[in-house]
C-alpha cells in the first residue's frame, strides 16, 4: 500500500475518534479576540491575558467587566480582550479605574499594569487607590524590566541585574533598591486581598488563575481593592530563550519575590 495514503487514513481515524466534545481539555476563551498577540515568544503577558479572559468567560461577567490598559508592553491589551476597555496615560491606570468604578459602582473594574507603570511613575496613584480601598482589581506584572522601551532598569530590577540603564548591574548604592510595592500595599487597610503569583510553569498558572477568580468574586461582593502581582519574565530584554527565562524566574526572581498570599481576608483563613 502507498505510504501517503496510509497516513491520510490514520489522520481521518484520529479526527473522527478523538476530536469530540467529551475529549476537549482546552479551548480559547470566546472573550479573547482573534487578533494575533504582539508579545515576544515565551512572554508571560499572553498567559495572563488568557487567564483573565478565561475567568471572565467562566464567571459570565463579560457585560460587567471594564478593563484599564497601561502604557508599556500591555498597552494594546484592549486589542486582545473582548471587553470594554480604556487606555490610560502612563502610571494613571488606577486613577482612571477610580473614575470608572465611582460612577459605575456595579461594574467589575480591573487595571493591568507593568512594574514601571505601577511602581515608578504611577506609585502615588497605586498607593492612594489601594488606601481608599477602591473596589477594583489591580493586576501587576513584574518582570523587573521596562519591556516596551527595550530593557531599561525598572523599580523592581534586582540588585546586580544588568539592564540597558544599569549596564554594570543595578548598584543599590546609587540606583536604589528593588521596590516591593506589593508588600507595601498589603499594609494598607484599604486592600482586601493581596497575593503574589507566577506563570512560569503549569502549576503556578493554575494557582494564578485561582487568585484571579477569587479577586473577581471579592469585587462582586464589593470587598475593596484586590491586588495580584504576577512575577513574570522578559526573554527578549533579559537576552534569554523562553526556557532560560522561566528558569530565571524560578531560580532568581521567585526567591526575591516569594509567591503566596500577602493578605488574606479573614473569612478565607477559616
Amino acid at each position: 500500500m502507498d505510504e501517503t495514503i496510509l497516513k491520510t487514513e490514520e489522520q481521518d481515524f484520529i479526527e473522527e475518534d478523538i476530536c469530540v466534545a467529551e475529549n476537549l481539555v482546552y479551548h480559547k476563551p470566546k472573550t479573547l479576540t482573534d487578533t494575533d498577540l504582539h508579545y515576544c515568544p515565551g512572554c508571560g503577558h499572553g498567559v495572563v491575558h488568557r487567564l483573565l479572559m478565561e475567568v471572565v468567560e467562566e464567571m459570565n461577567i463579560q457585560d460587567k467587566v471594564i478593563g484599564v490598559a497601561p502604557v508599556g508592553c500591555a498597552v494594546f491589551a484592549y486589542n486582545y480582550m473582548d471587553i470594554d476597555m480604556q487606555e490610560a496615560a502612563h502610571g494613571r491606570a488606577t486613577a482612571v479605574a477610580t473614575g470608572i468604578i465611582r460612577v459605575l459602582p456595579d461594574k467589575l473594574v480591573f487595571t493591568y499594569q507593568g512594574d514601571g507603570d505601577l511602581a515608578a511613575i504611577g506609585t502615588a496613584e497605586t498607593i492612594h487607590t489601594c488606601n481608599r480601598g477602591e473596589n477594583i482589581l489591580i493586576v501587576f506584572i513584574n518582570n523587573a524590566v521596562y519591556g516596551m522601551t527595550s530593557g531599561q532598569m525598572a523599580p523592581t530590577t534586582l540588585p546586580g541585574m544588568v539592564t540597558t540603564t544599569s549596564p554594570f548591574g543595578r548598584d543599590v548604592k546609587t540606583m536604589g533598591y528593588p521596590l516591593k510595592i506589593t508588600d507595601l500595599v498589603a499594609q494598607l487597610p484599604g486592600t482586601y486581598y493581596v497575593t503574589r503569583q507566577a506563570v512560569n510553569n503549569a502549576g503556578n498558572v493554575r494557582k494564578a488563575k485561582k487568585a484571579i477568580q477569587k479577586a473577581f468574586q471579592f469585587l462582586q461582593q464589593r470587598k475593596g481593592t484586590c491586588f495580584i502581582e504576577i512575577v513574570s519574565n522578559c526573554p527578549s530584554n533579559w537576552k534569554m530563550t523562553p526556557v532560560e527565562s522561566n528558569k530565571f524566574v524560578e531560580e532568581v526572581m521567585i526567591p526575591n519575590y516569594p509567591l503566596g498570599d500577602l493578605k488574606v481576608p479573614k473569612e478565607e483563613q477559616k
Binding site: 480604556q86 486613577a95 460612577v103 502615588a124
Partner: peptide
C-alpha cells in the same frame, strides 16, 4: 453626585478621563 478629593491634580484629571469614558 460623586465628589472625591484626589491625591493630586494628576490623579483628578485621570479620574475625569475614567468617569467621562464611562
Amino acid at each position: 453626585m460623586i465628589v472625591l478629593q484626589a491625591e493630586s491634580e494628576v490623579a483628578s484629571i485621570n479620574m475625569i478621563y475614567g468617569a467621562a469614558g464611562a
